[in-house]
Write a protein that binds this DNA or RNA. Structure first.
Length: 672
RNA sequence: GGUGAUGUAGCUCAGACGGUUAGAGCGACGGACUCAUAACCCGUAGGUCGGUGGUUCAAUUCCACCCAUCACCA
């Protein structure tokens, strides 16, 4: 394989400096890091840059709330993130910040080039304004009733209940999230990027294999709907960069964030003589440029970004790689279930390489979500990494150390089998290259099975009892260790730490992609020490518990719902609460949030629609006891008559908890 | 509401440009072994491939509709 050396610049999406990194974020950084390490192992020049995304209203407000300057907030968050990344063995060539001199200059340059080329226009628009806080409100900062379905407390841009999209002005009874007062509407001049100027260029760019097929299909929507101009300005007060010659107007965070990729790279260029900014970003750059992103920000990276780059006379990305989201135990991460796990909480309990391997074993090139099933995680890491892979070294090392003073044989016992391993190299490399990590892991583990079978067939522990066969024992174990070494080389992008310990154990030096194809013969190895220990399920449980505890402490700081007005005992007694057995629970066709429950309250059964679909699987409800309001006036709903109400607590969505009586309660018993 | 993606053994996932007995790992069960971090090896059981309808000699694979889950709607 004498592939020419490639020049590659890679980015991960910039994490927003307003909170902790969690295991969902890590999917992307680990995916990118594995890919970059693979490229470096292949001998290519591959530069991996990232930065904190630091601008916008949420960061400004959070800093205000903490009583510190936004600069101090983003500096602090940046340091925490940087530590999280390095502890997860994410090896950026540079981790910078969008609030940097480089970024300011690049954004200004970009804007001026776009403006001078006629791609910017201005328009006076109406926007929600908080009179008390004296600032314009982003859509998400206005809440009110959905104009279509009337659902209460919805965001200003879309309704979570019926899915309608609209603008904040359409909401009924809107209030500002900041002050709780109804917003007024004010006019303001905004600047727009004429995206439509780039339609032809974008159509060509999108359809030339730079995006996964499912992503380009999704983008067809935008072209079909017609490309709209993009609002790139925001009014003061805003934490960001002021637009040149437009006092009080700031660049929208989504304009300067991707420029942060360039800024981070430029910052690196200043410190490295071998890198030239224009070689990678110039219009005629021959270098490859890849952005790894989540599927939620495909639009920004595959329409705005290539258009803005083109308009400002830069090159466009070679490809944009979008990945799916993370679920934990099959569901959205949930703080109450303890599955909203921060990067730090994970690191406090478990080895980062286990997550790297687990993600790798599930990642493909597409935008499918991946699931972190914690039981599967434990089983898979223990079985694959410890039981299969490390076991090969572990079961061979003892013989070589004790019987042969660490000396390997001078030749391979089964060169054909070894060749089978090395010949898998290109297929596995191809899988890494195309980000089919799961396929690569499967192939590697299939080889690990072969290695174990080989040892099992030749039974060195039997031969070791016969002095005449000692030579064969050495040969079997030498073969085994060499197969292990090849596999460890293949896994080095995923498991850099374990690979390094294996290099030390085998005394083999720094392995690259090709070097492992030449077997290690006649040399001495070091004493074997466990390269990886098994995942203790207790640690996984402790991590989940700690994630729940994080919630407890954070909730203490939240104001409690105010206690309602005092009532007397008679008022309470007028509510007839009964123990009920859920005899049936099922989905309601066409309902977004409801489950249909059939409740047995002793003498009779009731039909109740409960808004708990996001929180409960109907199967698990059947048979259990709960508490219902039995004398609530029946309510006619779109799906039928609801004859009562099940008692539950919680903020809503997946965080709803229905009540259960203690053991011994019977359906129909009154609660008093 | 619109658009895209996903739905295959208990769990996590492969796969099939339509065609003989639909695969893997884990888990379960049985056996063998004892070199190895109770690891490893051999074997068995497990699926009407989300549902309904259509096209076809033939569909889990193509088409339509429906249901569920995820995402996006600038």
């Amino acid at each position: 394989m004498s592939e020419h050396e490639r020049n590659i610049l890679v980015t991960s999406a910039l994490p927003y400096a307003n909170g902790d990194l969690h295991l969902g974020h890590m999917v992307e950084y680990l995916q990118t890091d594995i890919w970059v390490r693979f490229q470096k192992m292949r001998g290519h020049r591959c530069i991996f840059v990232c930065a904190t995304d630091t601008h916008g209203t949420p960061i400004m407000l959070r800093a205000q709330k903490e009583g510190i300057a936004p600069e101090d907030l983003i500096a602090r968050v940046g340091e925490v993130m940087s530590k999280d990344f390095s502890d997860f063995l994410v090896d950026f060539d540079n981790f910078h910040s969008t609030h940097s001199q480089e970024n300011r200059e690049l954004v200004e340059t970009m804007y001026l080039r776009l403006r001078d080329a006629g791609h910017i226009r201005s328009e006076v628009i109406k926007q929600a304004f908080d009179e008390q806080e004296n600032m314009f409100l982003p859509d998400r900062f206005v809440r009110g009733e959905c104009p279509r379905c009337g659902a209460a407390d919805q965001y200003g841009d879309s309704c979570e209940s019926c899915g309608a999209t609209y603008s904040p002005g359409d909401l009924k009874n809107p209030v500002s999230v900041l002050s709780g007062t109804p917003p007024s509407e004010r006019e303001s001049e905004h600047f727009f990027f004429r995206l439509g100027d780039f339609e032809e260029m974008l159509r060509e760019w999108v359809s030339s294999g730079r995006l996964h097929e499912s992503v380009s299909r999704k983008l067809e929507e935008w072209f079909d709907a017609g490309l709209k101009d993009w609002d790139i300005s925001r009014d003061a007060p805003y934490f960001g960069f002021e637009i040149p010659d437009q006092p009080g107007k700031y660049f929208y965070v989504w304009l300067d964030a991707p420029v942060g990729y360039q800024a981070s790279f430029l910052n690196l260029c200043k410190r490295r003589d071998d890198l030239d900014f224009d070689e990678f970003w110039g219009r005629d750059s021959k270098a490859e440029l890849y952005h790894f992103i989540g599927k939620d920000i495909v639009y920004f990276h595959s329409l705005f970004w290539p258009a803005v780059l083109t308009g400002a006379n830069y090159r466009t990305p070679t490809a944009v790689f979008a990945h799916g989201f993370l679920t934990v135990n099959g569901q959205k991460m949930s703080k109450s279930r303890g599955t909203f796990i921060t990067a730090r909480t994970y690191l406090d309990h478990l080895d980062p390489e286990y997550l790297r391997y687990y993600y790798a074993s599930k990642l493909g090139a597409g935008i499918d979500d991946i699931d972190l099933n914690l039981e599967d995680f434990t089983a898979r890491v223990n079985s694959d990494l410890v039981g299969k892979l490390v076991n090969i070294a572990s079961r061979c090392a003892g013989f070589i150390s004790k019987r042969f003073d660490g000396q390997l044989s001078d030749e391979l016992m089964d060169p054909a089998l070894f060749a089978e391993f090395t010949q898998a190299s290109e297929g596995i490399a191809q899988a890494y290259e195309s980000r089919e990590f799961a396929r690569a892991m499967r192939e590697i583990m299939a080889l690990a099975d072969k290695a174990n079978q080989f040892i099992d067939t030749h039974k060195p522990w039997v031969m070791a009892k016969d002095p005449e066969q000692l030579h064969a024992v050495q040969a079997v174990c030498t073969q085994g260790l060499n197969m292990f070494r090849v596999l460890m080389g293949f896994l080095k992008p995923v498991l850099p730490g374990i690979a390094q310990r294996a290099e030390e154990f085998l005394a083999t030096g720094d392995m690259n992609w090709d070097s492992v194809s030449s077997p290690l013969l006649g040399t001495k190895i070091e004493t074997f020490k466990p390269l990886a220990v098994r995942v203790d399920p207790q640690s996984v449980n402790a991590m989940v518990d700690a994630s729940r505890e994080d919630l407890k402490t954070s909730e203490k700081t939240k104001p409690m719902d105010p206690i309602a007005d005092e009532i007397d005992i008679n008022t309470f007694a007028s509510v007839d609460l009964r123990v009920a057995r859920i005899v049936n629970a099922q989905q309601v066709e066409g309902a977004e949030k409801l489950l249909q429950l059939t409740l047995d309250i002793g003498g009779e059964t009731r039909n109740v629609f409960a808004g708990i679909k996001a929180a409960y699987d109907p199967e698990t409800l059947i048979g259990r006891l709960t508490v219902m309001v039995a004398n609530l006036k029946p309510r006619k709903m779109r799906f039928g008559l609801s004859e009562g109400m099940v008692l539950a607590a919680g903020p809503g969505g997946a965080d709803i908890f229905i009540l259960s009586p203690d053991e011994g309660a019977e359906p129909g018993m009154r609660i008093k």
